[in-house]
């Protein structure tokens, strides 16, 4: 069972089109709804920007692991 999409970073926005950088590759996606900005980490489903990654959660993991 798969429940995983890797977050990428928005590096360009032009209207409803965005370019998402995954490190190893870049892909185009569309914004259907929501506010997104260059620098946001997002997941993409079916070519549509789906959700913004909660950076506080990422920071939480980093903090506990780095201090452990």
């Amino acid at each position: 069972m798969m429940c995983l999409a890797i977050p990428g970073k928005i590096i360009e926005i032009e209207g409803k089109k965005v370019v998402v950088d995954y490190g190893s590759e870049r892909r185009e996606a569309r914004i259907i709804k929501g506010e997104f900005a260059v620098g946001d980490f997002v997941t993409v489903a079916a070519g549509v920007v789906s959700e913004k990654v909660d950076e506080a959660q990422v920071a939480g993991w980093l903090k506990v692991l780095e201090n452990d």
């Binding site: 798969m2 489903a45 079916a46 549509v48 959700e51």
Partner: peptide, 18 residues
């Protein structure tokens, strides 16, 4: 609940549209 939580978090990699 397992699938719902993945879908709602935007991490389902099944390629479904919204």
């Amino acid at each position: 609940a397992f699938i719902y939580s993945a879908y709602d978090s935007g991490y389902c990699g099944l390629g479904l549209d919204d």
